[in-house]
Design a protein around this nucleic acid. Structure first.
Lengths: 333, 333
DNA sequence: CCCATTTGTGCACGCGCGAGCAACAGATTT
DNA sequence: AAATCTGTTGCTCGCGCGTGCACAAATGGG
């Protein structure tokens, strides 16, 4: 009975139901031209035989795979896990499977896109990773992927669709909050200072701050988006010989850097947060809500962003999207 | 030139190189019978045309897809991110692509396996998730996936291959350490107390502790593997009316619970770690190394486990594997 | 009750490639 | 020189399904 193989094809079901193979296919297709009766009969036969359409063969025959590649190179940020959770869940509910592709270094973009295209993905989504537009360009030129979406990051590349949180709006809210709480000497803690990538959040904050106060915001850069580089950067900053204009608030590009900053302030420098130095982050990773950090941060509308992504996949949306997020004030500022 | 479509097939390359389509295929196959000269000529032609084999068509024609499904339902544990990073990287280096499948609830196992089988995966890997063996059984019965691997967890299911860290060995090292440091009143903090799943780490610890000391270890259960349920569980435990036999160490099933426990002790109960109560975890998530927690924990040999997984995929390994991990003592105990 | 119209169903063909065997050339043996 | 062997290349057939059209069945109006 259950001998070998899941190799029950549409032909088997067709025979069992007394119809042709194509009618079986129609029974599984949402709005196909088929009568209610035969559909039920076919589905019943399929049920008893344990048949399920082979999506691989289907992809080959049609030009849709219902497969989307998620490409990332940064697995050190817990926020990625939140993104992956939300995306895989909503995508699968919408009928899309997910190919997870690890992009080792940013030079590897073209290998990642190649891998995606070899599996005939309908779209590739680069999540939360900032990388060289030139590399992206050459990669795009070489290996065509039908659609390329940059998710939760910005890209100026014309061949690309951006779905992201509105960083400018976000950083303004943070700046307003910081000002309102009376902080006057912010330092911006950003990630690696790559040459070509614009650091949106940083410029958004510093521009707006300058606009409101007339003063410029110094920035420091961690060598990577991770705890300890952030600790190092902050320790170095605060060890500066001139404690007079020591910052009273560290505005960080994301929560990971912010958490590293808090650890540095508390455990390396013996300072109190927020009494001595306040800290703000970005992303609202789960840990930020813990009593240990209680980090003031900003939450991206991931669910809505994913819904927009699905619209893009369905072909009902074809332009960049910037959605508003939600400011989350906590005790760290 | 670059008009439309990556639809360059082996036929195009064959024509360009003046050989047959099958010779093109041979040029791309590692140990195929083909002369050095023609291979170079074919590869050169492929290079200029921008050809890459269509893995979908290849999967359909052969019975290998070089695709493996990674199935999980727990995205709240940062350790998953470490697992995903390592697995996708090593798998891709070994020529395997990764389908990431979200298993919403444990009842959903059969849907997840179905999705995997519809994509013709060569194997499905369930990572770090504990779920009902009965559910697994029915799911396995219904939808055949060639191989099912339980990764970083235990399963008694005979249709399944387990690749995991040796929990018994690990918990003994932790117990030895706890005893050596002079703690005598441990409480074990575990995850949800599901009926059918054996809590390996818990029983491993309590059994060994009983063996060494003759006393039994009380256990408490968080309602989920997450920070706040752990906080709740610990607060409730410590609010017990009898502070006489208050625990002097909390042995936790994993780091997430341990970190929640530390937060509860420090910020809800005003206790010091480790002076008032020590804490140990399991997994060595990145955060555990931060100065804020400095958590004593245990690191699973993820790289080796993934290598074993690859052996299983290649068919050179077909039995359960339990690998030793590494004890990581820090300041929390 | 017939014809126009609307469903509903069947079928030839192809998606891009792999398995496995047949054919062939050159090298070696008898 | 014929027979054999080895390495290399070509080819038939099929993987399981979708597209687009041809055709059959049902429907409705006159």
């Amino acid at each position: 009975m259950d001998d070998l193989t899941g190799s029950i094809t549409a032909d088997d079901v067709a025979e069992a139901a007394g119809v042709s193979r194509w009618t079986v296919a129609r029974a599984f297709k949402k709005d196909a031209s088929i009568s209610q009766k035969t559909r039920e009969r076919v589905l019943a036969a399929a049920e008893t035989l344990g048949y399920a359409p082979d999506l691989l063969a289907s992809s080959l025959a049609s030009d849709r795979s219902n497969l989307v590649a998620i490409i990332t190179n940064d697995f050190s940020n817990p926020h990625k896990l939140v993104l992956l959770e939300r995306m895989t869940r909503l995508l699968s509910e919408a009928g899309w499977a997910t190919l997870l592709i690890h992009m080792s270094d940013s030079e590897d973009a073209s290998a990642a896109l190649l891998a995606a295209s070899q599996r005939r993905v309908d779209a590739a989504v680069v999540i939360g990773t900032r990388f060289d537009d030139r590399i992206l360009d050459t990669a795009l030129g070489a290996r065509r992927v039908k659609k390329l979406v940059i998710f939760a990051r910005y890209s100026q590349n014309p061949n690309t669709l951006t779905i992201a949180c509105d960083d400018v709006q976000a950083m303004r809210q943070i700046a307003d909050h910081v000002l309102e709480r009376g902080y006057r000497r912010p330092v911006f803690l950003a990630g690696p200072d790559t040459q070509s990538a614009k650091l949106h959040r940083k410029t958004a904050f510093t521009d707006y701050w300058h606009q409101r106060t007339g003063s410029t915001v110094p920035a420091i850069h961690a060598s990577a988006y991770d705890f300890s580089p952030a600790i190092d950067a902050v320790v170095q900053l605060m060890s500066d010989p001139s404690p007079i204009d020591r910052p009273d608030v560290l505005v960080c590009e994301n929560d990971i850097l912010a958490i590293g900053a808090m650890d540095a302030l508390r455990y390396r420098l013996g300072l109190r947060v927020p009494q001595d130095v306040a800290v703000t982050g970005f992303d609202d990773v789960p840990l930020s809500a813990s009593p240990a950090y209680a980090l003031t941060t900003f939450r991206q509308p991931i669910t809505q962003m994913t819904q927009k992504l699905i619209e893009v996949l369905n072909g009902t949306l074809a332009h960049d999207v910037h959605l508003p997020g939600r400011f989350v004030p906590r005790l760290s500022s």
